[in-house]
């Protein structure tokens, strides 16, 4: 019986070395282009098809499952050192569809589309009935906690005045009644002691980012805030080698290509940890 029609693609196993190398290059690309939220790590390769590409190379069409780590997107810590957010901490899963070109043993991303989904309340409750759940980032208590924590940090830090870049995560803790918040900050051209109107403070040309974790506890007659910030060294920013112009990477909506991407080699470790401050 004549063999069936030859498929225009081949399907290696999802755990083959070649598939895993393409998947790791894809996750690396995602993390190098993330500006908000947290780095993601590869959890499972769901599907792979490899298409021949004229005149040279092959394109891996991958469907990947990722998991959120606890490193902020702008944290220079190598991904391997970023711990995965566990179920009891209200994990977040990513689903990515990626096209990775392999040519002359080089891997470059041609297309990436990702979205992320927090685990269900029920799943968290199953492993930890008392654990706090993620709150909406615009929850008034979460926003207030981030503002109060940043004000406390600036008040006790006699260097640059830091502005809020984004609130990355918030949780409302029932007992003791408190709000836990994680947020990213950026240094401005103002000095904390001389700030009259923060609106006039501009982010530094050579960006200096930081990442803060804080708890605001409601007390009788007031509130108490404890905040710890890690300020990252300014990084010599090198443009990430873009895929060849003939096939510009079409980044997913969540990835912004605007800012150049620090080269992994040039990243310095976090420089300064300040806090906790109460």
């Amino acid at each position: 019986v004549p063999a069936g029609p030859r498929l225009p693609y081949r399907e290696p196993a999802c755990d083959d070395l070649e598939t895993e190398q393409a998947a790791l290059a894809a996750v690396d690309y995602i993390n190098q282009n993330l500006r908000h939220g947290y780095k993601h790590t590869l959890n499972q390769i769901d599907k792979v098809r490899v298409w021949q590409r004229r005149p040279f190379g092959e394109v891996y069409h991958l469907e990947l499952d990722t998991l959120e780590t606890q490193c902020h997107a702008r944290d220079p810590t190598p991904l391997a050192n970023c711990s995965v957010r566990q179920v009891f901490q209200h994990a977040v899963e990513g689903d990515c569809e990626m096209h990775v070109l392999k040519q002359d043993d080089r891997l470059s991303v041609l297309f990436a589309k990702c979205d992320s989904t927090p685990d269900s309340r029920e799943d968290v409750r199953k492993v930890c009935p008392q654990c706090p759940l993620m709150a909406p980032l615009n929850d008034t208590k979460v926003v207030h906690a981030a503002d109060a924590a940043l004000a406390a940090f600036n008040a006790q830090n006699n260097g640059s005045y830091f502005k809020l870049l984004e609130i990355s995560r918030g949780q409302l803790v029932p007992l003791p009644a408190s709000t836990y918040v994680e947020f990213a900050v950026a240094a401005t051209d103002c000095v904390t002691t001389g700030v009259t109107d923060p609106a006039n403070c501009k982010l530094l040309a050579e960006k200096q980012y930081g990442f803060c974790k804080a708890t605001l506890t409601e007390k009788l007659g007031g509130e108490e805030v404890a905040v710890t910030c890690t300020i990252f060294q300014t990084q010599p920013v090198a443009l990430q080698p873009q895929p060849d112009a003939a096939n510009p990477a079409s980044p997913p909506p969540a990835l912004d290509q605007a800012a150049p991407v620090p080269s992994a080699a040039g990243l310095a470790a976090a420089a300064l940890v300040v806090g906790p401050k109460v």
Binding site: A13, C14, D15, I45, D46, L67, V87, D123
Partner: peptide
């Protein structure tokens, strides 16, 4: 008791090519 024809004694089981292994946990 005759062995079932055609069923390998487990030695020939090949894992499905996809999805691949889970590196952390599934949610």
């Amino acid at each position: 008791k005759g062995a079932q024809p055609g069923i390998a004694g487990g030695a020939g089981l090949v894992p499905p090519p996809c999805p691949g292994r889970i590196r952390h946990f599934k949610i």
